[in-house]
Design a protein around this nucleic acid. Structure first.
Lengths: 145, 145
DNA sequence: CTGTGTGCAAATGGTTTGCAAAAAC
DNA sequence: GTTTTTGCAAACCATTTGCACACAG
């Protein structure tokens, strides 16, 4: 029998709640998404999924990624390279990014203190936070040398 | 005689250094940009400038805004509404934005402590910061009610 | 059947670019 | 004259949408 990953379970619950179905294409896209780390664009995912099933179209990847974001499994990130990228969100600590403007690499970091200060600053202004993003641009260690 | 604003002086210096000229169109765009506060899109600026001189083209606004960013007078910001917006940078304290996902308004805020922690976190990872952006998404006070 | 899912191609929309004419020096 | 600037239209490119067909319940 097939093992169901916790991510798949979350997705199935989400789809059920929305009265949508877990189709083979959607399943394939989710599997590839959770199976690979990193910051992947729709095009990245499209190409990998295509290797396994060439019938999957570009549009379906776009639409499925939207569902994944909506279900809380993925997060859109902006790495300033002209396209939306996605990263895992399930069971993953929130974090931010440092983006190297030379080599394009990105470092993930997390600072609880910064997070707390953001929440405090928001509360003080009567702002109800649903999400936040912090990007630090510059040169990574190896590009500094 | 005409008064030259400090922003204009900065722009003139920048253009001179780049061996470019301060043309009437560029001057007009800068004047409108520094004369109005807020987060303005190319389209906003285009329309206002057009009222004064209909010969100014869309392209020129785009190109001039790039020059303004390059000269340090303007900063691109992403308010998640599908287009790049610009805000003043000259003589202005760095700040971040809280963006209301309902009414689209944005609140500027600044927290020295957060800034310092960002720098500390970067230094620790050997990352040389050139810029950073923090956006907090949610609901503003009036949209919460 | 009825409704959802899908691929394709076309549309969209902000931004950029090619190019010839206009302006600046 | 030589170089830069400009406006227009066309190109670009990631993303979205219209639509007819495929497929599942």
């Amino acid at each position: 029998m097939k093992t169901i990953s916790p991510e798949m379970q979350v997705f199935m619950d989400y789809l059920h709640q929305k009265k949508l179905k877990l189709t083979p294409h959607r399943e394939l896209i989710l599997e590839h998404f959770i199976g690979n780390e990193g910051h992947r664009s729709v095009d990245d995912i499209y190409r990998v999924v295509r290797e396994q099933d060439p019938r999957v179209g570009y549009t379906t990847v776009y639409r499925t990624m939207k569902l994944l974001v909506d279900s809380g499994l993925a997060r859109e990130i902006d790495l300033a390279d002209g396209m939306t990228r996605y990263e895992h969100l399930y069971n993953r600590q929130h974090h931010d990014h440092m983006i190297c403007m030379q080599c394009g690499s990105s470092i993930e970091f997390y600072n609880a203190h910064i997070e707390a200060l953001q929440d405090a600053a928001s509360e003080q202004l009567g702002f109800r936070v649903t999400d936040h993003r912090l990007q630090i641009y510059g040169l990574c260690k190896s590009c500094c040398d």
